[in-house]
Design a protein around this nucleic acid. Structure first.
Lengths: 245, 245
DNA sequence: CGCGGCCTTGAGAAATGTCAACTTACGTGG
DNA sequence: CCACGTAAGTTGACATTTCTCAAGGCCGCG
């Protein structure tokens, strides 16, 4: 008998990137996140508001509908963002990778739940601290506006995938998309890590776990990818792109 | 032989709401749009930047990928927003109603195409004018941020619909959603106008026109709705809500 | 070594898509 | 003013995709 919602396993750490006193200067994902817009002085000010925490895999960060107490910048690991229907059906609306920010909307409550897929590291800010900081630094709001506009574009692209692509196209698009996102944050590799479960992929792509599994097997059978532990290796990028419509 | 993309039929008009000199004070949808955050003086300033135009049904407002020259506040009529795949498949990512604003992201190019469904009226702003105005009025950016955050939530809800709901649930959710949006802008009625074509509904819900038609027929057969010219009348709101999951 | 969680595979069911015919509504021109 | 033509919508029969249910395999961990 396991708890349906594992309670968060969080503890404060030192940030893996930061040496004491240098405030995020060397943070590997800073330039992708809200903090990317800041000058050193502002960065230090923001860093003083941050708690650097680690959360172990399968922990819940927050649930849909909870009052927004904290916002987060992910520095390591993967988070699944999802909505639940009353009958238990789940739609994963996105996977957050290092550099992604949770809480861009600055809204009063979370519009979706968030769970660590694997062990993650993040910068946590209280919502009040962040809204205060934004008030004093209007360029941060501008940055957040750009980022949320980008999120919206991603969401609209996902609508196309969910509404109009066949299963194989969806899986191909998913793999390519992950590949590009890893590359963007400096993790370029022909091997695409897939820390999330098959059922996460299924719930993200509007498919069942069996269809995802069969589709991945088919791509492997056709030598488009090779299934490796915890991921897939791209064997034929051109074909994968062609399949993604 | 008709043109695949009817050219825009636009002409400048006086705003239906505004008497000369009173700058949007009586605009029926102002409070829902970007302009809802403004005080009379600012409103007048913004109104001086606006062109009030009418566009006839089926006209293209802008195409996906076009440089963003103008942004729009819709005051009357319905606009379909869509993305096209190279093979012609289309996903409608939303219908814009009066009070909706196109161009919240302030991005350099349009992420989707926009076509008038029926004859529409809008306030048009040049992108440069709007970005300039936003720079001088930071509270407008805050307002736009709230609105785009709301758009993102809508998009995420649509992902749930596309990824996890059955055809009947999708159609029920669509009708309810439209009903609520019309109510919000003061068009409450048990009759839900459906100015868009069946194929628009299909391309919005990730279904085919036949499935939409059959589902609507089924809802009518079960006395949940009554199909009327250019819309449906809700006969059993409770049942419709239950069906929408 | 055995258990549990995750993944894969197969067979059959169900939902939705495809193709085709027919209906309806409406605008236009004879 | 009617007749026709066209666009939109509906319905039916059948095809296809994806889902469901079930069995079995893999693998890490106690």
């Amino acid at each position: 008998m396991s708890a349906p919602h594992p309670r968060p396993v969080q503890h404060t750490t030192t940030c893996q990137f930061t040496q004491p006193g240098e405030a995020c200067q060397r943070c590997g994902v800073r330039i992708f996140s809200v903090c990317g817009a800041l000058e050193p002085g502002q960065l230090a000010a923001l860093d003083r508001l941050a708690r650097h925490i680690e959360v172990s895999g399968k922990s819940m960060l927050f649930e849909q509908g909870d009052k927004t107490t904290s916002v987060y910048s992910i520095t390591s690991g993967v988070v699944r963002l999802f909505k639940l229907l009353s009958d238990g059906r789940r739609q994963i609306i996105g996977f957050a990778l290092p550099g992604d920010f949770l809480g861009l909307s600055l809204s009063a409550s979370y519009a979706f739940g968030a769970e660590a897929v694997d062990d993650i590291q993040l910068c946590q800010f209280s919502r009040d601290d962040m809204t205060g900081f934004v008030k004093e630094h209007p360029e941060v709001l501008e940055r957040m506006h750009q980022l949320i506009a980008h999120e919206l574009i991603i969401a609209q692209d996902q609508m196309v995938i969910l509404g109009r692509l066949a299963a194989e196209e969806r899986v191909a698009a998913f793999l390519l998309n992950l590949h590009q996102r890893y590359r963007r944050i400096g993790r370029e590799s022909v091997t695409i890590p897939l820390p999330m479960l098959r059922i996460d992929i299924a719930d993200y792509l509007g498919l069942t776990i069996e269809t995802v599994s069969r589709t991945i097997s088919k791509l492997a059978r056709n030598k488009v990818i090779l299934v490796v532990p915890d991921g897939v290796r791209v064997l034929d990028m051109k074909k994968l792109q062609a399949l993604s419509a």
